[in-house]
């Protein structure tokens, strides 16, 4: 029983990280149709900004968790304006290559600046303890991660479905020409959406620094997991992302507990079969 709760909690914490890291890609890939393999660079940027600010300037972790995503969002907006926006509507080959090139550049910059070794992201002392509830024990930091994941999931859902801005984004994605002809500035909407995706990725990179270690190859290592979440969730949906993250995280955590040697094989076989049976993913509207 204790193990079961432990597995469930670990899965939920890991799912939250996966969700945060990949939800931004659900927006760019799922809604805007851009095959952006380089989404992980935003998570990497977030992690490095926080790690550096804490170790070099002694900035408090709590502040940086909010501040770093803002910085990354600005960077993402600039990238979108300068580069990404030129490739909307190009074939997926061009988009794949462009994003691979971007990963190389980001990895090289990180390696030239911080060296080849992974960076440590120091967590606040207050979170490095366990919360005991009866026979169960929960790591406080992981609880924060889960809370952040859930909060973002709910926020995204409400924001996209219930707010005026969300409606504008959906309209621009559904039919860009029509949205423009009724007076929406779609290119600014896309930039803002892209920046939001980058910011969420940064939050994921910061909170997940203990799961995916912050090295120069971060974006490449995380790539397949991020893409998998989006593919399993399906394109054109944001609601599916959390469930897809939860499924993948549970599968990985359970196999890590019981069949550690075959974790990778189980995961990719499962995803492969799922995509064959449902090429659009679990909740996808477009293929």
């Amino acid at each position: 029983m204790v193990t079961l709760v432990e597995i469930a909690f670990q899965s939920l914490a890991y799912a939250s990280v996966l969700y945060l890291v990949s939800v931004g890609l659900s927006v760019t890939l799922g809604l805007m149709g851009f095959v952006n393999l380089a989404h992980g660079i935003f998570a990497m940027a977030g992690g490095y900004v926080v790690a550096t600010a804490i170790s070099a300037a002694g900035a408090p972790w709590w502040v940086m968790v909010i501040a770093a995503p803002v910085v990354v969002a600005l960077g993402a907006a600039v990238l979108e304006r300068l580069l990404y926006s030129r490739l909307y509507g190009r074939g997926e080959l061009d988009q794949v290559l462009f994003s691979i090139g971007l990963i190389f550049v980001a990895g090289a910059v990180v390696r030239l600046t911080f060296g080849p070794l992974p960076q440590q992201l120091r967590l606040p002392e207050a979170l490095l303890q366990s919360l005991e509830v009866g026979p169960f024990s929960f790591f406080l930091y992981k609880l924060v991660v889960v809370a952040a994941g859930l909060a973002v999931a709910i926020g995204i859902h409400l924001g996209i479905e219930r707010t005026r801005l969300g409606a504008m984004v959906r309209a621009a994605v559904e039919n860009r020409g029509m949205a423009e002809s009724i007076g929406l500035d779609t290119s600014r909407l896309f930039t803002a959406t892209f920046a939001l995706g980058g910011a969420l990725g940064a939050v994921g990179g910061i909170l997940g620094a203990d799961v995916f270690s912050l090295g120069p190859t971060y974006a490449f290592e995380i790539l397949v997991y991020v893409q998998t979440v989006v593919a399993v969730a399906g394109l054109g949906t944001l609601r599916g992302s959390f469930l897809a993250s939860l499924l993948i995280a549970t599968l990985q955590t359970v196999s890590a507990y019981y069949l550690p040697a075959f974790g990778t094989i189980i995961l990719f076989s499962a995803v492969f079969l799922l995509l064959l049976a449902r090429p659009r993913g679990l909740f996808g509207r477009i293929s």
Partner: peptide, 20 residues
């Protein structure tokens, strides 16, 4: 049997499977 992004993902899964 698939195309575009799904095909890309299936080839990506395949390569990780085979190398594992």
């Amino acid at each position: 049997r698939t195309a575009r992004f799904t095909l890309l993902m299936l080839t990506l899964c395949s390569v990780f499977l085979v190398s594992e």
